[in-house]
């Protein structure tokens, strides 16, 4: 299985996310993550989808089927062009007094941040590519993880040309 990151520009209208996510599920495509947010244009939402496919042909099917949706303005496969991908994770970890110093050093090594501390736990925030996020989750599994929230990957192409002009 190969992973690809698609940037999908859609009309910022009610129901768009349903149309996109419904299509992906009914066509039985595998998605690793999906995230959406506002863009530099108020009328446009950007949906970032990481799909996992068996072949280029299956990827073409995903792109062609998404392209049929009326609200979809543009689809670019950012895995095919030079691009930067990032994901944000927040991890709540049990932090006893004894474990706290260890946790702080893990956080330092990953250049993560502790964004909340209570007497029982800390919340660690980290931004990075997927492997880095996976790695910190792996390391922290030695401690007691209470919960994890991940955004899924978002990406921008390098250089001056935005996705909408590609």
């Amino acid at each position: 299985m190969e992973k690809y990151l698609l940037a999908v520009l859609v009309d910022n209208k009610p129901g768009v996310l349903t149309h996109v996510s419904g299509l992906i599920s009914r066509r039985a495509f595998n998605i690793e993550s999906i995230s959406a947010g506002y863009t530099e244009e108020p009328s446009v939402t950007r949906i970032n989808i990481v799909v996992s496919v068996e072949s280029e042909n299956e990827l073409d099917q995903v792109v062609n089927q998404l392209g049929k949706l009326i609200d979809v303005i543009k689809i670019v496969n950012l895995s095919k062009v030079p691009s930067i991908a990032r994901e944000l994770v927040m991890i709540k970890v049990k932090a006893s007094k004894e474990a706290r110093a260890d946790l702080v050093s893990v956080v330092d090594i990953f250049r993560a941040q502790i964004v909340d501390v209570t007497s029982e736990n800390v919340i660690i925030e980290l931004t990075g590519n997927q492997q880095k996020i996976d790695a910190i989750c792996e390391v922290l599994s030695d401690y007691e993880i209470v919960e994890i929230a991940r955004t899924g990957a978002i990406a921008l192409s390098r250089g001056p040309v935005p996705v909408k002009k590609m």
């Binding site: 009610p14 349903t18 419904g22």
Partner: peptide, 13 residues
């Protein structure tokens, strides 16, 4: 809209 999404080209509320 939820019901007709898979069976229409497009839908509106």
């Amino acid at each position: 809209c939820g019901i007709t999404t898979p069976i229409t080209k497009h839908n509106y509320l």
